[in-house]
Design a protein around this nucleic acid. Sequence first.
RNA 1: GCCGGGGUAGCUCAGUUGGUUAGAGCACCAGAUUGUGGAUCUGGGGGUCGCCGGUUCGAAGCCGGCCCCCGGUACCA
Length: 477
Amino acid sequence: MPGTVEPRLSRGLRDLLPDQMLARQAMIDTIRRVYELYGFVPLSTPAIEFLDVLSGSAGQEAQQSIFRVSNPENEALGLRFDLTVPLARVIAQYAELPRPFRRYQVSPVWRADKPDKGRFREFAQFDLDSVGTVSEIADTEILAGMCDTLAALNVGPHLVRFSSRAVLNLLLDFASVPHSQCVDVFRVLDKLDKVGLDKVSLELMDGYKDESGDTIRGIGLTRDQVDRIVRFLNVKAERRRDVVAQVRELFANVPNAPAQIDAIQRISDHLYALGYGDDRVSLDLSIARGLAYYTGPVFEAILLDAPQFGSVFGGGRYDSLVQRFLGEAIPAVGASIGVDRLLAALAHLGRIGKQKATARVLITNMDANLTDDYLAMTWELRRAGVPTELYVGTAKGPGKQLRYADQYDIPLAILYGTNEKQQGIVTIKDMAVGREKAKNVGDRSEWLAARSGQVSAPRAELVATVKRLLDELDRGI
RNA sequence: GCCGGGGUAGCUCAGUUGGUUAGAGCACCAGAUUGUGGAUCUGGGGGUCGCCGGUUCGAAGCCGGCCCCCGGUACCA
């Protein structure tokens, strides 16, 4: 039809329909409860920041994935690509905030990257950070918070791992690699999970040609340097304390090694003491994380049944990010949960709730003369705290209206016509009973006559009866 | 960004040497059934055949360019 606009979205952007929003809100509520249990406080910052505020910490390539924004004043603006940089700005801008400042923030961020599985151009992150403390207790509680959050979300088998940029910097000394190459080396190490040790070794040296004929450029280390890196990568153990012992031995002759290794050992010991054993948090020193600004411990979590979605929860210590704004270094540590990536992974695994409606009761509208009764019943239930929808569509009979309740998975429907009114009762229908019964009924009249799952209650006892039935449904009776 | 595959109804797809008015299943809407959801039957709405240009009497199908999607790869602060 000419003159109409095609409804569509730019790539990487999505609508979240009600069933998706309900699952998402449930997830966010759960995460918030854990973060608040830990005593973190909420923060909100604008989606739009000055470009120099955003891009200072990132490399040149990074700027390409920033969405630019225009305003009437023609200022250089962009959409935030994470929540950490705005946090650093807030810390620098509000000197009066008591420190440590321990905040959580759930907000959308934007990256103009190529969309991929579980990867969008607009997506929400849910961050928690402690700013203004060098204490390893802060690192410990971020890791513990990650464990508790994932457990509360019921995501299935998962693994929280941590490592240390400080220890990886020791590795550079151990392998005689100049620190100027740290970004390249860590970037390649970050692929270990994905491509394996052999390809990582090749890429650290002269590169290779992969199956598709693509050339992977190497970073030019020598065989001897790579051998030493591989010895480090082979430091592996089920138990964190064994990993610590092994790396201590390997780095026996590296200057400053004992202090850095002591630091990760203390975090590990705190976790042991709190009951976060080797089954919940592992120490995997090969984890580098892509971000350049990490300075100490780094963390990440993956879902064991959906590893292709990558890290769903990641973070680390970044002791110099605020320096850019303030001139003064303020230590900080935090982690970020990828709400949308995690939701995509859980949807893939069939682990998200299937709730479609908020209403638990639908009052059907069968007789225009009884409108006042329907209104009264609706508000009685609402005032009693029962989420209730009054059918406001045009369908006359109950058939279409019950179908509506069925489509939205509203568990109870109220039927009230002149029959009920004369008898002073209401009919309350349990939708699930009929749905179950329909599987074994072939004949329609039989199906209709069954009046499945219906009970009558005195009109005066509507609220009490509905509450009792919902309670029974919730308890699976 | 690079390599490969693809784009026809809301979804999954069929549609050959280029030839009437482009189809099916599912989904949706209505009726059979005006006080009862499912199944069944009948009917209905819905298409710029990804976009632009070219070849041709004639293009969903051929040619060129572009866009987008999927898989792999690279990047991911």
